[in-house]
Design a protein around this nucleic acid. Structure first.
Lengths: 158, 158
DNA sequence: TCGATATTGTTACATAGGACTACAATCGCC
DNA sequence: GGCGATTGTAGTCCTATGTAACAATATCGA
């Protein structure tokens, strides 16, 4: 229906071009957020290179680990995607042996989603790498600045 | 080649789901940035509803206005997209009479891009609406917080 | 000056992530 | 028991990219 930020082929980075007048573009929160997010995505991608793990997939792993047994619908809500998208994501995870669907005794329609032992191990590795890269990425900020940034972002997205 | 944030069909918003343990997801800059950006995009979309103007299109208008005569390649660099994408974008702008291509006397290969008078008017309207919506969106932040946020984002994206 | 090389716009093609809809199975509630 | 709501699923469509190939033109070096 409408359009929004998602994931797809990527701008390797949004570099400033020499000799161009950017006017007051930086004063727009949306523009500033987008630039920062592209940079963050770059960092994420470097951290997980080769694993084929995208941000939503990583998020799904984290969520499944902390909330075993949730349904695909719930996962979709958490990620902000349609049910069909959550299903494709689950297919992907299951296809790699990272997660599995288990019938729910209490509800014949729904599946419960669980991380497999392998999924847990992969998550741990990813988590370590992502955290490390995150720290490097945020290296330009002082510790207090980083915390302040997170606080402000949280306030915006709430 | 790789994947990254872009625009496409959208998650209407990424709401927190009741009873779910989000663990330390908020501690990841990438995740926090993404959530904030989705919210910002929502605000942008409301501001430009009906105009069919997406963030990159808006950016292109602003850039063309301040840098008349730039080439499509340069526009692509600024937006962080491939030449072919810049061309499609230019087609769209030209199709609506917002911008036009003019032959360059100095380079037979390239076109110079210029905003039309109509393009200028549309930009002014959009700019006003976007700025207004931006302010509303940032309303949850104190003036100083907003400036601080922009400063930190800039530092990250640089 | 001329030929190799690079750049620009363009076209055609491929991909990826979503949304939307329709459907069958199942649940919940009256 | 029956009807509306929910769940997973499959199918289809759309949009925004990127890549590769090409012709025209520029540029640079021998």
């Amino acid at each position: 229906m409408r359009k929004g930020p998602a994931r797809g082929p990527r701008p390797s980075s949004i570099a400033r071009v020499e000799g161009i007048d950017y006017v007051d573009l930086d004063q727009h929160l949306g523009y500033a957020l987008r630039r920062a997010q592209v940079a963050a995505f770059d960092a994420f991608h470097r951290a997980t290179a080769g694993a084929g793990v995208t941000p939503p997939r990583f998020t799904a792993l984290v969520i499944l680990n902390a909330n075993p047994g949730i349904t695909q619908s719930t996962l979709g809500q958490i990620l902000g995607t349609a049910r069909s998208g959550a299903m494709l994501l689950t297919d992907w995870l299951e296809g790699r042996g990272l997660a599995e669907r288990r019938h729910r005794p209490d509800d014949g329609r729904a599946w419960g989603l669980y991380l497999t032992p392998k999924g847990g191990r992969v998550l741990e590795t990813l988590r370590r790498r992502v955290r490390q890269q995150d720290r490097r990425f945020a290296g330009r900020l002082a510790g207090r600045e980083r915390r302040e940034l997170l606080r402000l972002l949280e306030k915006l997205a709430a």
